[in-house]
Amino acid sequence: MKGTKVQFISKNFIRMILLLIAVSIVTFTLVSISPIDPLSANVGQAALGSMSQEQKEKLEEYWGVNESPVQRYLNWAGDFVRGDMGVSLLYRQPVTKVIAVKLSNSLFLMAIAWAISGVLGFMLGVLSGAFRGTWLDKLIQGYSLLIASTPVFWLALLLLLIFAVWMKLLPIGLSVPIGVEASGVTFFDRVQHAILPAITLSITGVSNITLHTREKMIDVMESDYMLFAQARGESRWSMIRRHGLRNIILPALTLQFASISEIIGGSVLVEQVFSYPGLGQAAVAAGTGSDVPLLLGITLVTAAMVFLGNFIANILYGVVDPRMRKGGTVS
């Protein structure tokens, strides 16, 4: 029993390493074949023209233009395993430091959105599925389908217009007030600036979780054990409470952790619209600016987050599901 658990964890760990290697190679290749010339993109065509050859060579060395891509990748990978993710070309700071700052901004945002969309989506999905065909179900489903088919950036702009421009209730962008020193930024400021992006992310996240939970709940409601519960005189609420939640919680857990990737994906767009200085925005900047070390760093960190999310879901599954906990087979 213990052995299988250790096996499970080490197997997943190896899989994560392989995944990260693959992701880094793919990202690296994509950036290498990208037509953007890092020099003219970051220094500027005009400035480049007025530079001396010496200066140019120095710059080229800094951006690593003349080395072969394989050599560059190996250099980077060698540093990476020693814990050095390199220096961001754009921010001129160690990548680890840039990521730490951006990630803390984003995590704040994503955690709020993840929690709200998870809890709300679960509740709405359970209700909708349990009362399938009623007006409540139609309302919830209609809302979810509407939101699911709305582009995230459009929703973000709409919220921005309503709450920041018209009603002037919330700030337009950034994660802290403009022109205030870092030490003067209060927790309240941070919350206030994160509200709109978080709401946008939550709204889109909710609809997805709701629709998936609803499907699962319908399966549960149509199961034979629900029929038997009904035959034994249990009320609808009792059935939902005693058997519904028990059986929906496992698929819901998986859903919740799988949605991490969607939250990360959504945050890229949302951060862009709200000019929220998080990981998503940094990723866009790194991509368009050919900041290879930063882009690789961000890609790997997010890939690891997604992987860890699924990994945690698997472990929780084993803890919660008696069929797995007791070593049985799931039918």
Binding site: D224, L227, R232, R246, N247
Partner: peptide, 27 residues
């Protein structure tokens, strides 16, 4: 139903897979 009329269902799938047997028997 469940009080004056009791059902013995057709298959074992009528038991909640995630609930302990005792709890189900005692409802």
């Amino acid at each position: 139903r469940g009080k004056e009329i009791a059902l013995v269902p057709q298959s074992v799938n009528y038991l909640d897979p995630l609930m302990k047997v005792g709890l189900q028997v005692r409802n």
